[in-house]
């Protein structure tokens, strides 16, 4: 009996937290900064720290994943004598699956954790209270620009990841393994469709970006304002963010590509 009670209590806690996080999200989006110039400045600053500073890790990981995919794909495809299909394999797996998922995972680790830690530290040093005391809503001054920047950046980063991965794969399969250059590109051209492959990948990336950034800013805002609390919140951002991405990816893939 006790364990059922505990289960119910934790479910209720969880539901309450989700509800709070939902209200928090709605409030921070619908209370945008009033002064247009200021809000643009804040957003650009965040776009830089969330997006531009994540470029290196995204480009490098993209290139390596493209290279590994080509090596693996080539060794299998060569058995059937269809090495040039490596271009198709590369483009489809990157665009549909790997780019959004891996980018989002890296984003949760790189940008999400830093968002949580930054907001948590602002809370611990009373900067958030300070905004409130000045009659400035911290949700619109601190949270909104960070959330919007995250949502804008991740889909773009995912595209950059794909491009970098395809170039990396091209390097391995065409330059090193000797796949015919024209066949590499033409197999890709024939099999990749804009609305099913590229758009679906972008939709996935957009969903992930909303979820990951939401988790990151919420964990920062709600953290216990001590060094231990911030550490825990940062860990939760990465763990919850990664799990949410993988679970959501399955649901989205089933909806987009599954034959029901």
């Amino acid at each position: 009996m006790k364990s059922i009670e505990l289960l119910g209590a934790s479910l209720l806690d969880w539901l309450e937290a989700v509800g709070r996080a939902g209200i928090f999200l709605v409030q921070s989006i619908f209370r945008l900064p009033v002064r247009f110039k200021e809000s643009v400045n804040l957003l650009v600053k965040q776009l830089y720290s969330v997006g531009v500073l994540s470029l290196v890790i995204i480009i490098v990981s993209g290139a390596f994943i493209g290279m590994v995919l080509s090596l693996q794909g080539y060794s299998i495809l060569a058995k059937f004598g269809s090495e040039e299909a490596v271009g198709q394999l590369l483009a489809l797996s990157l665009l549909r699956e790997l780019s959004p998922v891996v980018t989002a995972l890296l984003f949760a680790g790189r940008a999400g954790s830093s968002l949580t830690a930054e907001i948590g530290l602002m809370k611990a040093t009373e900067q958030l209270s300070s905004f409130e005391m000045m009659g400035v809503d911290p949700l619109r001054r601190v949270i909104a620009p960070r959330f919007i920047a995250g949502v804008i950046c991740l889909p773009i980063l995912s595209l950059i990841f794909s491009a970098s991965g395809i170039l990396g794969g091209h390097l391995v399969s065409v330059q090193w393994l000797g796949v015919y250059d024209g066949a590499f590109w033409s197999s890709m051209q024939q099999s990749v469709y804009f609305d099913t492959d590229i758009m679906n990948g972008l939709i996935k990336a957009l969903c992930f970006s909303v979820v990951v950034t939401w988790i990151a800013v919420y964990q920062g805002y709600e953290c216990v304002p001590t060094s231990e609390g911030i550490g825990k919140a940062t860990t939760r951002t990465v763990v919850l963010g990664s799990l949410a991405i993988l679970a959501l990816d399955f649901i989205l893939t089933a909806a987009m590509f599954g034959d029901f």
Binding site: M122, T125, E126, Q127, S129, S130, E132, M133, M134, G135
Partner: peptide, 20 residues
């Protein structure tokens, strides 16, 4: 409330200066 708070100033224990 935000209007009333404009009439208040608060010096926080940590200073709470905006670090950016």
């Amino acid at each position: 409330l935000y209007k009333v708070r404009k009439k208040m100033g608060m010096l926080f224990q940590s200073g709470a200066l905006f670090s950016d």
